[in-house]
Nucleic acid binder design. Sequence first.
DNA 1: AAGTCGGGGGT
DNA 2: ACCCCAGACTT
Length: 380
Amino acid sequence: MTAVADAADLRDRLVPWYRRVARSLPWRDAPSPYHVLLSELMLQQTRVETVLPYFARFTRRWPTLEALAAADLDDVLHAWAGLGYYRRARALHAAAQAAVAAGGLPSDPAALQALPGVGPYTAGAIASIAFGVPAPAVDGNVERVVCRVDGRQDDPRKGPARRALTARVAALTAPGVASEVTQGLMELGATVCTPRSPRCGSCPWTDVCVARAEGLVDVLPRLPARKAPVAVRGVAGVLRAGDTLLLGRRPEGLLGGLWEPVMDEVTDADAEGDAAAAVVEVYARRAGVAVDVVRNAGRVVHVFTHRRLTLDVFEVRADPGTRVGGDGSYDALAFVDAHAPDVALSKLARKVLDAADGARRQPPLLDGLAHRDGAGGDAG
DNA sequence: AAGTCGGGGGT
DNA sequence: ACCCCAGACTT
């Protein structure tokens, strides 16, 4: 067996390495508690490259914690649209309001974790990065880096292993260099000790790494296999009235607070039978509108973490002046500008609208067929 | 402990 | 295809 490295040794290798190679990132170059809170919420389960344009947009529009706290939640959701995990946007807004009410962001990890959207990792990250408090911050990168350097073969997400991992990181995180240790661990995981094809030749820990010595780099950390997303079918209808478009706002939950063309999940039998009839039913139920199907606009496939949704998309029409209502399963229904909808749209909604636009730009060769055929073979 | 909650990039 | 990302929250 190979000996586990000393914490002080690891720290003394990590901090100078981090200072040398740290990427220039906006929340590093202009650090402030607000910037750290904003970046950390955005970075949850999200890559740095994805966050960059959103971080720039937010800081330009809401330069301070106070400005964000005073913003309308709808505007925050709109600015967040496309980033995913939309509960984070609500949490960010609520956390900003709570922090402003308390006179500013706290530096204590326990107080930070009391804020909405701030869990064990984010509390440690903000405390150490924004305030220099030596609190451990264990994210997916840190979990992988530490499992490898220590040669840990247990599941690092289960209770006892999790606590040991956190204690190990706490021993690494020392006063005076807390920010560099936290960011250095994550930088190491993001740029060198990557899930696949790690660059061990560029690692400051390579000659004290247990996984390296024992040939376990490729199998650590040992995480349980994740379940494949479940296949689900659905139908969507794009209803245009002049230069406007009918959209519904989803309630809290999946894509909560975002707007979309009227759609719903349907049974496999309905999807494979008469999808056009299904979309008529969905409109009657969810929007209270009697529609006719104009054309089949093909299929859209959208993959969520635990669901793979295949939507049959239709262009539909209704009598002018039709009033909307429905069963209340949408928070709101509204006609918006068809060319520049000024509301928060999910990526799924954009795909559906793009499919309808694409189908509309090329008039069907067999115009009457879409009506009789329903979900028939002319998709796509 | 297990399920929910987006979207995208790397391999 | 599959993995997994600067995770939190609910049940």
